[in-house]
Design a protein around this nucleic acid. Structure first.
Length: 215
DNA sequence: CAGTGACG
DNA sequence: TAGG
């Protein structure tokens, strides 16, 4: 009596995107319940919050961080810092299950030396989106970005090195991991508005984990 | 400094 | 209406 007669676990597969960029389809699916448990634990210590941009607008995605460095934005600007502005305490440590997933995904994508020191947790509710932007507040662009999707599906946009470059639309679903680095490390990217979708593990919500070497 | 957002 |  084998478990896989009952468990219907989809095997991951790889989808090349661009030079240095890949989608690892369903790479995180089998571990998703444990990843979500870890997200809950982190956000009990560092609550999800909607940050303000320097221009004074409120971001539609709610964010929290774990690891040595956390990304924050407020009227003063965008930056990484070692403390949570809500509590002035250090960010929660990066749970091992998150670190391990990020390292395995990076290795699979051709980045064997990835040592993330920052994990940004983004929670999207229906209506939330993220405009095209570059991840460029890090100090080390030799390391890739690893982005994990959990819960409701969304359309990811993967653009060029200039905002005006027309982005590719990449539908992402639960368990998909996008890795980009090397020549594509500074690509503009974002997501379209999240549509209502009832996911068995997360309800109407989508979590995105992004891992970086920030410091 | 701020376009990771708002507007027509 | 929603996205370019």
């Amino acid at each position: 009596m084998t478990a896989d007669l009952f468990d219907d676990v989809e095997q991951p597969w790889v989808e090349p995107l661009e030079d240095g960029a890949q989608v690892l389809r369903r790479f995180a699916s089998a571990r998703a319940p444990a990843l979500l448990d870890a997200i809950i634990r982190v956000t009990e210590q560092a609550p999800l919050r909607q940050m303000k941009t320097p221009g004074g607008h409120t971001m539609s995605a709610a964010m929290a961080c774990c690891g040595t460095w956390g990304w924050v934005t407020d009227r003063k600007g965008y930056r990484y810092q070692q403390t949570d502005p809500l509590t002035d305490k250090r960010w929660p440590g990066m749970p091992e299950i998150l670190r391990a997933l990020a390292r395995e995904a990076a290795e699979q994508a051709g980045y064997p030396d990835f040592e993330p020191d920052a994990c940004l947790i983004n929670r999207y509710l229906p209506g939330a989106k993220m405009a095209l932007h570059q991840d460029k507040d890090e100090t080390d662009f030799s390391q890739p970005i690893v982005s994990v999707s959990l819960g409701s599906p969304i359309v990811f946009q993967f653009g060029g090195d200039r905002r005006s470059d027309r982005p590719r639309k990449v539908p992402l679903e639960h368990g998909d991991v996008v890795v980009w680095g090397g020549p594509s490390r500074l690509r503009y990217h974002g997501v379209l508005t999240l549509k209502p979708f009832d996911h068995p593990l997360t309800g109407a919500c989508r979590y995105n984990l992004t891992f970086r070497r920030a410091g």
